Simulated assay, not measured.
Amino acid sequence: RRRWIEIACATPARMFGLYPRKGTIAPGADADIVIYDPEARQTLSARTHHMNVDYSAYEGKQITGQVETVLSRGLPVIDQREYTGRAGHGQFLIRDTCQYLS
């Protein structure tokens, strides 16, 4: 589990100069919490995904694993697989230099 967090959270945050503001659950960090069901099966489709186009390069592809819930700054933006976010909730974060280049 620690390796998954390092690969999926901490490393990208470091690469994009956002760690430790992102990529960790710690006091003062702006963590988005994802509850993920690794066993759920789903079929990818433009009809069921939240994007601003009416097609998907992956249309009809069946995959295993699905996001159940996402909390952003303590508020649900995906709840029981349904988008519940609101316009204006996002926040621009100024990035630092990639930590791997320092």
Rank of each mutant, 00 (worst) to 15 (best):
D54W: 07
T69H: 08
Q91I: 08
Y19I: 04
I35R: 10
D96R: 15
A13R: 08
P27D: 08
Q62H: 11
E82Y: 08
F92V: 10
L71K: 00
Q99H: 15
S45A: 03
E82V: 06
S72D: 02
Q80S: 13
R47T: 09
C98N: 15
E68S: 07
G65T: 02
I7G: 02
E82K: 14
D54Q: 11
A57R: 13
H89Q: 15
Q99R: 15
E82A: 13
D32F: 01
R2N: 11
R47S: 11
T97C: 14
A10Y: 04
S56F: 07
I7V: 09
M15I: 12
T11A: 13
I35M: 10
E68D: 09
T43D: 03
Y55E: 05
F16Q: 10
Q66C: 11
D96W: 12
G88N: 05
I63T: 10
K22S: 04
V70L: 00
L71R: 00
G88C: 04
P27G: 06
Y55V: 02
L75A: 14
D37M: 06
P76W: 04
I5D: 06
Y58F: 14
E59F: 05
Q80G: 12
H89I: 08
V77K: 04
I63D: 05
R73V: 00
P38C: 12
Q42F: 07
A26N: 05
